[in-house]
């Protein structure tokens, strides 16, 4: 059976692919393609963040009683990334390849560090905390995907 870790990690992987595609298009100044793949990247990421912020994190906080701990740091990093998405979108609109490349480079490290922390620490901690309730949390997240 698929675990929370597997499900969310493979979603990270999928976001990475969109990220790489958008970056190449922007570097080639193929703005129509860049806009399309960036939008795909951004919407996949946003959806991923929402699954975590609306379902995983609250469940984790309820189960462990830790509201100021790891989930708080993850939320803050989501905010930092959302700000970068906004600036990247502006760079695509302005067709500014240098600005996009710089933001993309910055986002890559922030995002990968964030993913590592989630995959190595937060997801395993959540699974441990949820125990048998994990299945329900996973189902809720998947339902959110089909609605969206």
């Amino acid at each position: 059976m698929e675990t929370i870790s597997e499900y969310l990690s493979s979603d990270h992987h999928c976001c990475d692919d969109y990220f790489a595609t958008a970056e190449v298009h922007a570097a080639k100044r193929d703005w129509a393609a860049a806009a399309a793949s960036f939008e795909q990247f951004r919407s996949t990421m946003t959806h991923h963040f929402e699954m975590e912020e609306h379902i995983l994190f609250p469940a984790f906080e309820q189960e462990t009683g830790m509201t100021q701990g790891p989930t708080q740091v993850m939320r803050m990093e989501h905010e930092q990334m959302r700000e970068l998405f906004a600036r990247m979108a502006a760079a695509v609109t302005a067709q500014d390849a240098d600005e996009y490349a710089g933001l993309s480079e910055t986002l890559l490290i922030l995002l990968q560090q964030h993913n590592l922390k989630e995959e190595n620490v937060l997801y395993p901690m959540s699974e441990q905390a949820f125990g048998s309730k994990g299945e329900a949390v996973l189902r809720q997240m998947k339902e959110m995907s089909t609605v969206a």
């Binding site: 701990g69 790891p70 740091v73 803050m76 620490v121 901690m125």
Partner: peptide
């Protein structure tokens, strides 16, 4: 399992 040991602390 507290935050400072989990690799997710800001400090």
């Amino acid at each position: 399992m507290n935050a400072p040991d989990s690799g997710l602390s800001l400090e």
